[in-house]
Design a protein around this nucleic acid. Structure first.
Lengths: 189, 189
DNA sequence: CGACTATTTCAATAATTATTGAAATATTGA
DNA sequence: TCAATATTTCAATAATTATTGAAATAGTCG
């Protein structure tokens, strides 16, 4: 590996964390280097900088492309493929959430929806179905929330996040605004 | 494996998804069964129901305990350890987020903070450090937001999530409430 | 087309991770 | 304490996943 120390530390860390993030070391290192690079890099650059094999870089780039985490870029008078990550970290985060949802959540929701349609045969299955239903409804709420806020411009999203739990003050205020006069009473505290 | 069909489908799915979620099949299956079970289960129950080895169940339960995803429970007149998951799916979600943050985000933040302190030696390192800084600041914003809303009671949290992007209306309203008269002008669109 | 360069594929193998099951250890109750 | 039972550990091995590098394929330009 042939990199300035600051960049090398970052790249090595991403490689190590790869396994916790569900990607392998190679992919983690490639992504890290593309993220911090100040110009588009080609496969040769990555092979030289990271000391990986040709094939490994090709496969790694293919995987990163399937995640929409890197973009193909062509440079004038150079027919090799070059790659970049988006400049905007918020764009990257949105992609990451979307892709992880697609891989880690959607398949489970499909299964849960199917299992909800079945008729339980005994008390144990009925209880299990209730638990699955609770899981389904919770995930639905979370993903619907994300689908909603994801539509906001980044500037607005950052505002919203910066507000943190202070948003609750606004919520409490809203309660009064949107309250149905004589509406349902709450059972809790 | 000896389970009612509804529960078996759920358990098998969790086993398959395990690898995408960073846990193994055994752990996924054990967790799934505990989640839908209508009573605390012991290691024998899990061995019988899932057809796993004794040692495998022991290790799986240990891992789930290290994630705080299952709780040890003792039944009267039975000295075997039994296990349950929390009844409340929101408690489970909070645990999951906290533990994933601890394993998947905190180590990177530590590295990023260290790398921010270094002095770049050339333009490439300076650019890289800027990128790392952007990543650091974004993660900080997201985790600070979560640390904040995580303190809310579940009922309030669900309210907040149910509101989705409609919260922005409240935000726009708040802009006017908290605006500093003659305050700083924005540079963007 | 044909020479050249870039990229991908894939079989071989290295490395890692998961799983078993028997032995060791720990715990309980008499 | 001892016998019985419960739990954990861990060496062996199975299974999976990562990685290489050479060959095949695809693409480009004269």
């Amino acid at each position: 590996m042939n990199l300035p120390p600051l960049i090398q530390s970052f790249v090595l860390h991403f490689g190590e964390m790869g396994s916790r993030w569900g990607i392998n070391r190679t992919v983690g290192q490639i992504y890290a280097l593309l993220f911090v690079a100040d110009r588009p890099l080609n496969a040769d650059d990555l092979v030289d900088a990271l000391g990986l094999s040709r094939g490994g870089v090709s496969m790694g780039l293919k995987e990163l492309q399937s995640w929409n985490l890197v973009q193909l870029r062509h440079l004038p008078d150079d027919r090799r493929d070059h790659f970049v990550t988006p400049d905007d970290v918020w764009v990257i985060m949105r992609t990451l959430v979307e892709e992880r949802k697609k891989r880690e959540i959607d398949p489970t929701m499909t299964v849960l929806r199917e299992l909800m349609l079945q008729t339980p045969h005994d008390a144990a299955e009925a209880h299990a179905q209730g638990r699955m239903s609770a899981m389904h409804d919770q995930i639905e709420l979370l993903t619907a929330w994300y689908a909603d806020v994801q539509r906001l411009e980044t500037e607005r999203l950052v505002q919203l996040l910066s507000l943190g739990s202070r948003i609750v003050k606004a919520l409490e205020f809203k309660d009064r605004l949107f309250a149905v006069p004589g509406g349902k009473r709450e059972s809790g505290s």
